[in-house]
């Protein structure tokens, strides 16, 4: 299956902005995040098809996975 992975903010640095990635069926958001080269602690907020999602969310063909790092400065 193909999932569109979107990275935001500093997660783009040295990686990519948007990429269509192929995964086996039943791949979780956490597995896709790892495949994108993003460490679990770097993925503070995850959206699947624009809905807030837990890391164990199982992805489906055609899904869009958006990943944000923690932005905590003031």
């Amino acid at each position: 299956m193909t999932v569109t992975v979107k990275l935001f903010a500093s997660l783009r640095t040295g990686r990519f902005d948007l990429r269509a990635m192929d995964f086996p069926a039943d791949t979780s958001a956490a597995q896709a995040i790892a495949a994108a080269g993003v460490r679990p602690e770097e993925a503070a907020v995850v959206f699947v098809n624009s809905r807030h999602a837990a890391p164990d969310t199982v992805l489906a063909d055609g899904d869009t996975l958006a990943i944000f790092p923690p932005v905590g400065g003031g």
């Binding site: 500093s10 770097e42 503070a44 907020v45 890391p55 790092p69 923690p70 932005v71 905590g72």
Partner: peptide, 15 residues
């Protein structure tokens, strides 16, 4: 929900 899935988040972010 903004800071990490209910797990213990880090004290600071990418800043």
């Amino acid at each position: 929900d903004i800071y990490g899935h209910g797990t213990a988040p880090a004290e600071r972010g990418v800043e």
